[in-house]
């Protein structure tokens, strides 16, 4: 199973195994990773599950949908090249291990 490391803004980190099919948001919620409120529960409707993908991992991810791109315009923390909504990234066999950083604010 692939491992995802969630790094907090303060530098602390947790690494968890993420089953295929789960989103990075769901895996964070089910493992008590703080900082991802995900208020709409993965509907791509609230922009409160923003994460920064590590530069080295960015090319592995599928492209942004228009919807996700639009919602990223509205995130509370600064939008950076690695910005993604963790509810829209699903673990696949091909994706492999990832590292993401959780921004300090989601609202």
């Amino acid at each position: 199973m692939s491992k995802v490391t969630y790094r907090q803004a303060d530098g602390s980190a947790n690494t968890i195994e993420v089953p295929v099919g789960w989103s990075l948001m769901e895996a964070a919620m089910q493992n008590s990773i703080e900082g991802i409120p995900a208020e709409c529960g993965g509907g791509c409707a609230c922009a409160t599950c923003h994460v920064y993908i590590d530069e080295g991992d960015m090319s592995k991810l599928p492209d942004l949908s228009d919807m996700e791109g639009d919602m990223l315009e509205c995130v509370a923390a600064e939008r950076l090249p690695g910005s993604r909504l963790s509810c829209q990234i699903r673990m696949t066999d091909e994706l492999g291990d990832l590292t993401v950083t959780i921004p300090s604010e989601q609202f």
């Binding site: 409707a45 228009d66 315009e73 509205c74």
Partner: peptide, 9 residues
């Protein structure tokens, strides 16, 4: 409808 940037704005 399918216009989240407008919604958020």
């Amino acid at each position: 409808i399918n216009d989240p940037s407008c919604h958020m704005a």
